[in-house]
């Protein structure tokens, strides 16, 4: 039984281990040029090299700062606009076709146009992230606000609550699971948009790090950069978004409308 439990504990480590092993064996047999296919050891060495240099820290900070700025703008504007539209059906009806269309071209599609507006740099990335986050948060907030059962609202209104109070104490928490789902998937799109934007539209950031890896034919930097990107995304999901969801959604016994991402 204990053996089983140890196996169970170790299982998540199996696929990375297999991948590393396959990679090492392939590398040992084929001996590909390191500029195209780095070795495991080479990537580890690059990690060390990147960690010791000051470029990596600056790139991570630049990327995270842009994500934070863009996502914050997207979440705030998306939630507010979503609330206004959710509470007023004519506004929602008017905006819906626009939102559907602009959601379809959100993110990287804007790059060629807005690079002429903002030039290369952080403003461009922030705009693209805002653009990716806003429409998803907006759509989910409208849905969430519209789906709050009216009974709950009547409940507090009969207790003498004003319209504002009922929005604050009923509509907001009621719509929260949807808003959080919107934020979570919005950040997924935002993170992708950021990396894509940084590939061509920035001089710093993680996207630029891997892009320069390609320019100098340093596949080891690309792989190391990708792994860092994955680690940051995973850390954000696990330590930021999941706890928020747990603390609110699960404690109230609500289920997020769509937990899969």
């Amino acid at each position: 039984m204990t053996v089983n439990r140890i196996v169970w504990r170790l299982l998540p480590a199996a696929p990375p281990a297999v991948l590393l092993l396959a990679w090492s064996i392939y590398w040992a047999i084929e001996q590909p040029p390191p500029s195209v296919m780095p070795s495991v050891v080479g990537v580890i060495a690059t990690f060390g090299e990147l960690a010791l240099g000051d470029r990596l820290g600056a790139d991570i900070l630049a990327s995270l700062g842009r994500l934070l700025g863009g996502a914050a703008c997207g979440i705030v504007t998306g939630t507010i606009a979503g609330f206004v539209a959710g509470l007023h059906r004519p506004i929602a009806a008017f905006l819906t076709p626009l939102v559907v269309f602009f959601n379809a071209i959100s993110g990287i599609v804007w790059l060629p146009l807005v690079i002429g507006w903002f030039g290369v740099g952080s403003a461009l990335a922030i705009f693209l992230i805002w653009n990716s986050v806003f429409f998803i948060v907006f759509q989910n907030t409208v849905l969430g606000v519209q789906l709050v059962p009216e009974v709950l609202e009547y409940g507090v209104r009969t207790l003498g609550a004003s319209r504002w109070e009922s929005i604050r104490s009923v509509t907001l928490p009621g719509a929260l699971p949807y808003i959080l789902t919107g934020i979570r998937s919005g950040l997924g799109f935002g993170w992708r948009a950021l990396i894509a934007a940084e590939l061509v539209g920035a001089t710093t950031g993680l996207g630029q790090l891997i892009f320069s890896g390609a320019e100098y034919h340093r596949a080891d930097i690309i792989v190391a950069g990708c792994l860092i990107i994955g680690a940051i995304a995973m850390a954000m999901d696990r330590w930021l978004l999941l706890p928020i969801e747990r603390r609110t959604v699960q404690r109230w016994g609500l289920i997020a409308p769509d937990r899969s991402r």
């Binding site: 998540p12 696929p15 990375p16 500029s35 195209v36 990287i108 997924g188 993170w191 992708r192 990396i195 894509a196 590939l199 996207g207 891997i210 892009f211 890896g213 390609a214 034919h217 596949a219 690309i222 792989v223 950069g225 990708c226 792994l227 990107i229 994955g230 680690a231 940051i232 995304a233 995973m234 999901d237 991402r261």
Partner: peptide, 19 residues
């Protein structure tokens, strides 16, 4: 494993794919 790779967008692998 899948969650990790979901965090690395496809576009991040583009430089490597080009190589």
């Amino acid at each position: 494993f899948l969650r990790f790779f979901q965090g690395i967008s496809g576009i991040a692998w583009l430089p490597l794919a080009i190589l």
